[in-house]
Write a protein that binds this DNA or RNA. Structure first.
Length: 501
RNA sequence: GGCCCCAUCGUCUAGCGGUUAGGACAUCGGCCUCUCAAGCCGGGAACAGGGGUUCAAGUCCCCUUGGGGUCACCA
């Protein structure tokens, strides 16, 4: 009874101090660990947090979980920042580094120790490992046996290394309420005196997360489903501090085509399928950030039948209620379709700007001038990615060095050379700035030479100009290539045919 | 293995007791057409299985099966 009222007043005091959690504005966070590039599943978590914050006029915080100094790198932090910026998911606060907050954890440990809610544990790691192995072999759930729990805190065990453990209370709630998953039972058997501070003095993840989330007054913890099992232990820690317990929303994980959680170790496999665990890869593969955000949001969340959402729509429509409970499988085909949809909506100038970088991968150095805009315009309905667009635009920059053999067989039958010659001779009389002018000329040529069949002229011509029989409108191609280049390519084809025949 | 979660077309999903089970991607036809696309029209394709509850079950309950997650001095 006494304990209960103390707890209640503790919560009240804290809540007052914080301005009251009830009518407090939403504060969410994304907390990746900087151990490599940003994981695509992490991106989805970031998006949901970001969108939730916007929807509720809340604050989106970025926190870097770098207590594992072995694996954390500055480079990884930079990559995370870059990726979030690319996706336009910039945090309102942060990045906050856990490694800068070590003293805060220390204070919290002192509090816990003082309250007898934690104790030092001198058990040797080897011994604990042995006990765990034994539990496993006996098919029991391993649980710390509490050897050091009963130790007198004032006794001096000397200079031996120790960890700090949480003194798990006997009483615990029988469930917690998850905004996505619903009621999740809490299994007391799984609650044990877990480690808060390692023997090297660094805080463990479960400990630092709680302290940080509480101190940053996070109201809603939206994170991956793989954290559900930790949640009960974390809730118990909030209670030990008399901190208000935030709302939890565990979102289903993103799976690979094989149906299991995406793994960074399987990049090779994924590559062949057109997917990746790394966000940056999607950028390299020519995806638009808005398309990726649209796809990732819609993977696991829905708004009736709508597929395409502007950022504004996402920010007003996103809600946790319509997040599904089952994992989503990454589907590159749908991602491509969404990307293609976004490409069509993107201005020629923006596409040209994107193209510049991808063309340089092909050794082509150009600027996003008017010509490149026209090239982009000619390709935008035919490209699912910017990479594909760049690939398809190559013929604009390089005259064909060879012609597709099958196409030659089909379209450059004897007599083809005469058609090409005729076209070339007509060129000086055409207005190349107007596609209609070219179209008119070729049509009249068709009625003269091929019984009005434009295809019989266009295809041999296309082969001469592009080296293949697939390209944007031939009139558009000629117009973009210009009189001089078109003439040159025609002459070259004629030469080729002259040699052959 | 213990614990937890999940289950509608191949994939993402709508559905919140009464539907010809809808949409999107993919796929397959057709139209359009200078090729390829885009666009338009159309087809095939799903409630994992079994018990209940109910006048009525994709929708509620239980079991089975299947899938996933998690069990550290990692995060």
């Amino acid at each position: 009874m006494l304990a209960r009222s103390q707890t209640m007043s503790g919560i009240f005091a804290r809540a007052t101090q914080l301005g009251g959690l009830m009518n407090q504005s939403v504060r969410v966070r994304f907390a990746p660990s900087p151990t490599g590039y940003l994981h695509i599943g992490g991106v989805r978590t970031a998006i949901y947090n970001y969108l939730f914050a916007r929807r509720h006029q809340g604050v989106f915080i970025l926190r870097i979980e770098d207590t594992d100094r072995q694996r954390s790198t500055r480079e990884a932090v930079r990559q995370i920042l870059d990726s979030l910026e690319w996706l336009d998911l910039k945090p309102d606060e942060g990045p906050i580094l856990q490694s800068d907050r070590l003293s805060i954890y220390q204070e919290h440990i002192d509090t816990l120790l003082k309250r007898n809610s934690a104790y030092r544990c001198y058990c040797a790691p080897e011994l604990l490992e042995k006990k765990r192995q034994q539990a496993i072999s006996e098919k029991r759930t391993y649980k710390y046996d509490g050897t050091c729990r009963k130790r007198d805190p004032n006794e001096d065990p000397g200079e031996r290394p120790y960890t700090v453990r949480f003194r798990m209370p006997d009483q615990h709630p029988d469930h917690f309420n998850d905004l996505i998953m619903g009621a999740i039972p809490i299994d007391g058997e799984r609650l044990d005196d877990w480690i808060l501070v390692r023997s090297d003095g660094t805080p463990t993840y479960n400990f630092s997360v709680v302290v940080d989330d509480a101190c940053m007054r996070i109201t809603h913890i939206i994170r991956g489903n793989d954290h559900v099992a930790n949640t009960p232990s974390q809730i118990m820690l909030y209670r030990a501090f008399d901190y208000p317990v935030p709302q939890f929303a565990h979102m289903p994980l993103t799976h690979g085509p094989d149906g299991s959680k995406l793994s960074k170790r399987r990049e090779e496999e994924y590559r062949k399928l057109g997917i990746s665990v790394s966000v940056q890869e999607y950028r390299k593969m020519g995806y638009l950030p808005q398309a990726l955000v649209n796809y990732l949001t819609r993977l696991g969340w829905s708004h009736k039948d709508q597929e395409i959402f502007s950022r504004e729509e996402l920010q007003t429509k996103f809600d946790l209620e319509h997040v599904g409970k089952s994992p989503g499988v990454l589907d590159p085909a749908k991602l491509k379709w969404i990307n293609a949809t976004y490409i069509k909506q993107t201005s020629d100038q923006d596409l040209a700007n994107l193209l510049v970088a991808h063309l340089s991968d092909h050794g082509i150095r150009v600027e996003a001038n008017e010509r490149l805009c026209r090239i982009a315009a000619s390709l935008k309905i035919r490209s699912e990615t910017i990479v594909e667009m760049a690939q398809k635009s190559l013929f604009y920059f390089h005259a064909p060095t060879e012609y597709d053999p099958n196409s030659i067989k089909k379209w450059w039958k004897p007599g083809a050379k005469e058609i090409l010659t005729k076209i070339r001779e007509d060129i000086p009389s055409l207005d190349f700035t107007r596609e209609a002018s070219i179209e008119k000329a070729l049509e009249s040529l068709a009625s003269e030479l091929t019984e009005g069949k434009l295809g019989k002229i266009a295809q041999p011509l296309r082969l001469a100009l592009t080296g293949t029989t697939v390209s944007p409108s031939i009139f558009e191609v000629m117009s973009i290539l210009g009189i001089e280049e078109t003439t040159k390519r025609l002459e070259r084809a004629e030469q080729y045919l002259a040699q052959r025949d």
